[in-house]
Nucleic acid binder design. Sequence first.
DNA 1: GAAAATCAGATTGTCGACAATATTGCAATC
DNA 2: GATTGCAATATTGTCGACAATCTGATTTTC
Lengths: 239, 239
Amino acid sequence: MSATDFDPIVDTTRRAEIVSLLKRAILTGKLEPGQKLNELRISEQMRVSRAPLREAMRELVQEGILTSIPYAGTFVIEVTAKDIEDAYSLNQVLDEFAIERTWPLRTEVFFAELDRRHAAVKQATLDIDTTRQIETALQLHGLIYEWADHPLLLDTWQRLTSRLQMYFALHQRARNEPVPSLDVHEEYVRLLKGKDMKAAQRHAREHIALDFEELVAFARGLEERQAAKKPGSRKRLDN
Amino acid sequence: MSATDFDPIVDTTRRAEIVSLLKRAILTGKLEPGQKLNELRISEQMRVSRAPLREAMRELVQEGILTSIPYAGTFVIEVTAKDIEDAYSLNQVLDEFAIERTWPLRTEVFFAELDRRHAAVKQATLDIDTTRQIETALQLHGLIYEWADHPLLLDTWQRLTSRLQMYFALHQRARNEPVPSLDVHEEYVRLLKGKDMKAAQRHAREHIALDFEELVAFARGLEERQAAKKPGSRKRLDN
DNA sequence: GAAAATCAGATTGTCGACAATATTGCAATC
DNA sequence: GATTGCAATATTGTCGACAATCTGATTTTC
């Protein structure tokens, strides 16, 4: 082993840049659900050609936050109440598994990181930027997945996370206040440090349930309001 | 409702064709793990330009069966014993959940489809084509996911399936005999038709375990053999 | 006047060529 | 003799242009 270990250098392709730009735009709600992504317009705005843009969009289609209809266009996925419920139920199952896997691997480093992320969440609640609040909360939550030594599980969860983040952003955009659940994390962190795995699993299940209940209720309301208008309305990308 | 319901027409883009061609080549083992995909060569063989090929490859990268290193190339993923174990453990968790979700939704149509797929599996065992055996077994197994009314779960499982199929193909390519597990399905189908959900879940867990035990053992052996040789050998795409 | 056919406009899909980057082999240097 | 510097080559990344397809408005037809 050498004295210093280096990480691989980051990919420096336009494609990768575009992916993160698009992803961010979608997850923060700058691109709304159902909205069409006009390739020419976006490529001009980003000052790139359509080739890397299209490749980036293919990635996001596969990641599940865009959907593509040949010769018609690529759209940001619509968010239905059922989608949220589904994401929630799957998240419950995965959480339980992630905790089980991470449990025997917890070390001092893990606890330290847990505290660090918890602090970040608390820090963000003081902030005005609601996006940051969502991100930090999801990062705290993601630690059990990163620590589980199970790449496939982590990958699966991250895919889920994209959707969750979208849903939360949508929620916060509509109501101009953050999702509550401030010191629920307190208990969560405490249990992850403790000795009762079952209790931690149970709490993860229930604590997330609270956040979701409100989300689903919001989504149901949103759908009813949209059902009142006439359906099939298409939105445009203008800015 | 109209008298006849039509399915949406299939995408008729080269990209989609290429995706299924590549996917098939990878899942059947025609493209070996670790192998590099030369864009120019493949595009010439398929008589298409590199643009749709590259987009197709981006999809498969995101799907997890290819991996891309900027300016270096795109490669078929390597299969380690741990990968198989991970896929297995996650599959267990998802199976349990899928059965739970499907259970109350079972109808006569479900049972009929179950029998149909079971028959297909039995039919395939008579066949010589081992690939078909794998496909039919996975299709039988996939019914609980298709029936669960949970698109996200189905999507997650299909992603997993790609890997599983690769692993099985790899296994069968090395040893020139099919994976055993002939009438394990008999019991599986019987339990899915029954009244004891817990029993069905338990059986799914254990019956799959058997298949996997052998797979993992095979993979471990394969890794030891490879470790004996010197590492870092790159393969080429020649045919 | 309503339905079908036609035509323009816009957008996506595909192509071939060029630019950027990595790899390989060889020469130069210590 | 091993390492470094430098071409030559191959391959990936990106570009601009063209072809295929869809959308909608207009014209034609009955």
